[in-house]
C-alpha cells in the first residue's frame, strides 16, 4: 500500500489529504473536510494535469515575446517536454489571442495558443 500526501487547493483551508493506493487503485481518501477535497484528490492521484504557460519569440512585433499557453491542461509529467518543445520557436507578428503556435505539443493532443494580441511594428 502506498500513501500519497496532498494539499487540497479547493479553498484557503488547504486540507492535508492522505490517499492510500494499491497500485493504481484508490483504497482510501482521508483528511478532507468536504466533498471537493475528495474530487480533487481523486484527480490528482489518477491523472494530474496542468495548464502550462510560457512565452515564445515574436519577430517584427511591438513586443519581443508573446505569452502562450496550452489550450487545455496537459498531463503533469509532460510539462517539461512541453517547455522543451517551445524552445527556439519564432513567430511573426501580428499575433492574435487564440492563434495556434504549435499543434499537439509533446504528443498530448493539446495545442499551444497565443495569449496576447501583438501588433506589427511599423517603422516610420
Amino acid at each position: 500500500m502506498e500513501k500519497r500526501e496532498l494539499t487540497c487547493i479547493g479553498c484557503p483551508m488547504g486540507c492535508a489529504i492522505t490517499v492510500t493506493m494499491n497500485g493504481m487503485e484508490i483504497k482510501d481518501i482521508a483528511g478532507q473536510t468536504c466533498k471537493r477535497g475528495e474530487t480533487y484528490a481523486r484527480k490528482e492521484v489518477t491523472s494530474p494535469s496542468r495548464v502550462v504557460t510560457s512565452t515564445v519569440v515574436v519577430d517584427g512585433g511591438t513586443e519581443r515575446r508573446v505569452p502562450v499557453k496550452t489550450q487545455n491542461d496537459i498531463p503533469k509529467d509532460k510539462i517539461f517536454e512541453c517547455m522543451k518543445a517551445l524552445k527556439g520557436i519564432h513567430i511573426t507578428a501580428p499575433v492574435a489571442i487564440g492563434d495556434i503556435i504549435l499543434v499537439n505539443v509533446a504528443g498530448t493532443g493539446v495545442n499551444i495558443i497565443a495569449a496576447k494580441n501583438i501588433e506589427q511594428q511599423h517603422f516610420v
Binding site: K69, K116, N117
Partner: peptide, 25 residues
C-alpha cells in the same frame, strides 16, 4: 496583468481561467 502570463485569472468574472494578458485584453 501584461507580465502575469500564468493562468488563473477571471474565474469569478468570466467563469474560466485566463492568463493575465487575456484577462486584460
Amino acid at each position: 496583468l501584461n507580465q502575469c502570463i500564468h493562468n488563473g485569472f477571471g474565474l469569478h468574472t468570466f467563469k474560466e481561467e485566463l492568463t493575465g494578458p487575456e484577462y486584460a485584453a
